[in-house]
Design a protein around this nucleic acid. Sequence first.
DNA 1: AAGTGGTCTAGACCACACC
DNA 2: GTGTGGTCTAGACCACTTC
Lengths: 236, 236
Amino acid sequence: MNGTAPVEINSWERVRAELMRRIGERIWKPGDRIPGEEELAREFGCARATVSRAMRELADSGLIERRRRAGSRVRASPDRKAVLRIPIIRLEIEGRGMAYRHRLVEKSELRPPVAVAARLGLPTAETLLHLRSVHMGDGRPFACEDRWLNPGAVPGVGQVDLERISINEWLVLNAPFTGGDIRFSAAAASGMEAESLSIEAGLPVFVVERTTWNDDTPITWVRLAYPSGYSLTTRI
Amino acid sequence: MNGTAPVEINSWERVRAELMRRIGERIWKPGDRIPGEEELAREFGCARATVSRAMRELADSGLIERRRRAGSRVRASPDRKAVLRIPIIRLEIEGRGMAYRHRLVEKSELRPPVAVAARLGLPTAETLLHLRSVHMGDGRPFACEDRWLNPGAVPGVGQVDLERISINEWLVLNAPFTGGDIRFSAAAASGMEAESLSIEAGLPVFVVERTTWNDDTPITWVRLAYPSGYSLTTRI
DNA sequence: AAGTGGTCTAGACCACACC
DNA sequence: GTGTGGTCTAGACCACTTC
């Protein structure tokens, strides 16, 4: 296994490429153990830190699993990372060459439904800001938004003129967050959604539900519904 | 701005946390320039490589933008990375405590429709393997799959008994890929989908379309349709 | 206990983009 | 040119986990 002449690959990218090749061509099969950093550094004639960097990237992209003492193994089914933007809907619409307008349909302080409170990890007793808006492209409904906002988490939101700037845009620009979760699904348009989107109730809508928080403070829960025809694309 | 006493933060994680804090609390606002690596290394009393690592992670998670010579800036609207698995549907179903079964509905060699050929970047003249399957949990349809496969990209697929192992599972385990793109949407179930899923045509289905390739070789295009009720969750 | 990955350092050189 | 990030090195010590 040893005694191989150094192959003289430099830079962690070339090391990574070579490792990926060996994984891709099944020279190392799923489940197999990969040689240690030191051994690979010797083989490639580079510093261990360079191999380490390459392997860290492979682990990041889900191709291998690394554990101290146990070594690194090829993963059976890789988890790949995709970039998911939290979009400013205005820009999404303008990017399609349409004129943006939005309408604030509701703004009130209410106690949230149990399901929403649960997702935010807040007691139902506390009132939240409830906002419903419709985003339009060239005058036609593009998406409708149902949002519950924890005002304590976003100081200054009370002073914002939400007729001028949509809550979506204001939050993206002004509310930093450290984490969140996202849920995609298809549903039949509810009566309210159908009305907002000018479609018939029961027609399919693409639904994005998103919860975000800043450290341990929940910020907002939002449900966005897009009429069928919209699609969300990402690269992996 | 200088002359600050070293704050003695060690390890790139603590450096990252401190930088995140300054970004989150708007000490550095979106668009602002962040001090250079060397200056921060002096401030934190650590090596430049440590600051570099911290800032690379921040750039990776989309919080800052880095450019040589120009320095690093806080991004206005961060792109966050989420992990998207390409699931083995059998495991998805068994994970919900249901018994898995699948049915291969069609297997043929055909010239693909223009839209499919275009997505794969292949000429329509070339025949592809066309596969349609239904995945079932506890005997009820869970998802249906319409797949076009480039046989040249996956040697050995001809010998596989696709009644025994689903093409989805076989590919995840045996066809390495380097990239792909994914498209989520909602649609009204087509007649064929409705029949496969035992629902009425026109009802909402959640649709995942995925194209994968290995370097420049397209591997497969697949459309998965899930009846409403299914949702895909990810963390950001 | 020992082997593996994880991190840190100090210094060096390179690559790129802006001047 | 010149300043900034990007990478590399050699060596060291630490942390975790399995033996």
